Amino acid sequence: MAELINISFYQLLVFIHTILFVLWLGADVGVFMLGQHFRKREKYDLPQRLVLLQLLVNLDMTPRTAWALMVPLTITMVDAGGWWDVPIWGVMLSWVVGAVWLWLVWDAHIHDQTERAARDRKIEFILKIGLTLFYIGLGVLSLVQGEPLIPVWLATKALMFGLIFAAAIMIDVAFKPVGPQLGKLIAEGSSDETEIPLRKTMDTTRIWVWIVYLLLLATAFLGNIKPF
């Protein structure tokens, strides 16, 4: 009975993991499409484009929320599935990290354009760098030594999850100039002088967005097919 309960718990975690993946990728595609329409200054006037941008920012909270929840969920899954005997304190720590990250994301969103939001995002940035190093290190160590993640596909998936962190961090870095550029667009109106630099920033950001999409699909493939 205990084994049956454990299997059911693991299956529940897999289901939740799938839902989070769908929300992450699906909502992010929506963000991408809104960004595409925001770029069309020949089709929409500036007030309409700003509404699209506001929708983009709000919808973007869905993948950001899913991303934060993926951290404790992945640690709990590998433990419940018998892939890695994670100490109970390690599982609990992962949920604390996930909860703190989730709070930072939403607190920054609610208090946007304030010093509090800027502080939240600085802390979040440091946290994401730490998690990037953790997952990449876990993946590389497992591939080289064959532990703690024994299956090659799972070790590779951990490594790729770390690379997703790195690419997503680069999205935020590349997108950072948008703030002052958008402020200039609102203050001075639409013109080549205000639009072209903003467009270049968004184009650069889109490169990293596509990298995240490809890595997400690759990790989903590894998790479902388990080719090696």
Rank of each mutant, 00 (worst) to 15 (best):
G130M: 09
T74C: 14
V173E: 08
V86S: 09
L131R: 06
I186P: 00
W95D: 04
E115M: 15
V212Q: 02
G146A: 05
K157V: 09
W95F: 15
I75K: 12
K128Y: 04
I136D: 10
T74G: 08
W24A: 14
F15N: 13
P47W: 02
W101A: 01
S190E: 15
N224Y: 14
D192A: 05
G30T: 03
Q181P: 03
S190R: 04
K40T: 07
F32P: 01
R116K: 12
L69Q: 15
L34F: 09
E42G: 06
A166D: 00
E188I: 07
A27R: 03
I211F: 05
E188Y: 03
L216V: 06
W208R: 10
L163S: 04
A66L: 11
G183K: 04
T114M: 13
I7A: 10
T18K: 03
E195T: 10
E115Y: 05
A220H: 04
P180Q: 08
L215P: 01
R116A: 07
A167K: 00
D203H: 10
M77S: 15
L56F: 13
V209M: 07
K157S: 07
I7T: 12
Y10Q: 13
M77T: 12
T132V: 06
L50S: 06
T132P: 12
R119W: 09
V78F: 10
A118M: 03
V71L: 08
V178H: 01
A80V: 12
